[in-house]
Design a protein around this nucleic acid. Structure first.
Lengths: 186, 186
DNA sequence: TCAAAGTTCGGACATTTGTCCTTTTCTTGT
DNA sequence: ACAAGAAAAGGACAAATGTCCGAACTTTGA
């Protein structure tokens, strides 16, 4: 549930070392909004440290968290590839360090670097696997199943997700989450 | 909701014309299962004609339709890229014609053909956009919203989806679908 | 044409989830 | 330490969805 991508990180680490003009390293504080749904994207980010959440804000005001991303995960690549406005919001859940690439540089790189293409294809394929199997799971199983997995993740990763975020990830209201948590501890 | 990809189709058309040893054209009848969830995949398909459904079969026996795919859409590419067993089932909803590539050939092509890489990146990015925004939408909105879109699709495309498939796409039971349909026609 | 079998549909009730609002618990400043 | 305000939790009812099963409708074969 918290995705990471070591291979991609080391690729970008190297790129950074050999090309500091085009790749820079930034630092953002917890809570900062890195991408804004519906707005133009000018940069592609790769997480060096920290955790972010990607979430949709639907017209009815509700949020849905698509995924939590950590080390080596890339952000803004879909928008860069398809030349579209921000698909969803991205907010820093912890303090983060990110590599930043301008979109034109990223796109130029794509036209000539097969390694980058390969890494990206693997990353996108992995995301489809995750997103689609989660959608299926959430539609067809009860909340408890999803909650169990989410609690397990927090345990393993040693991270604390707020209840609001847990509910947004499960696609339910806070009230329902509280109920599920209560049922859980019986 | 019914996805197609003209660009990809013409790429494969050309590949077929220049390389009939490695790319072949097959024909399958309606109802045929082209990929089986959890089983090894040996081939990559590109739809030349017809429509298929990709669906998960969950352990509780329920189905969830991830997407409907038509002309120019590729199948089995995720499994080929990540070298994994079938992610979901794929069944022909109509008679279909497909180009067939063996996985090793497809992978070899990936290592040297930037055009293919580009087309695939665009396709995978598009799928992520669709899958994730649909997941969000379905979690956060009522069934009627989803149903409206689905009916619209059938109208536009002139295709008839069975009620079972409509329910599986919406992630609800047939009973709930019938109710929604009734409410709809008021 | 008719009856039997299969299929689809909808009623009735159970369960789940959401909404709204009160109660409880936690913070904060003096 | 305590009161006031803020944040979190839970009760009560409403709405949505699922399950089960019988009724209505279709198909098929003699």
């Amino acid at each position: 549930m918290l995705r990471t991508n070591t291979e991609f990180l080391s690729y970008i680490d190297k790129l950074y070392q050999s090309n500091e003009l085009e790749v820079s390293l930034y630092h953002f504080e917890k809570g900062k909004l890195l991408f804004h749904q519906g707005e133009p994207c000018h940069r592609v980010l790769v997480i060096k440290e920290g955790i972010v959440k990607c979430f949709f804000n639907e017209e009815n005001g509700k949020d849905y968290i698509v995924e939590f991303l950590g080390r080596g995960e890339i952000l803004g690549e879909i928008e860069a590839i398809r030349q579209m406005d921000g698909l969803c919001n991205v907010a820093a859940l912890t303090e983060i360090k990110v590599y930043v690439l301008a979109v034109p540089f990223f796109r130029a790189l794509l036209t000539k670097d097969l390694t980058l293409n390969k890494l990206l294809l693997e990353e996108l394929a992995e995301r489809i696997v995750n997103t689609s199997s989660r959608a299926s799971f959430q539609q067809l199983y009860t909340v408890e199943h999803g909650l169990a997995k989410l609690l397990e993740l927090q345990e393993k990763q040693g991270i604390a997700i707020t209840k609001d975020d847990m509910a947004a990830y499960l696609g339910i209201t806070l009230r329902s989450l509280n109920r599920a948590l209560k049922d859980f501890s019986i």
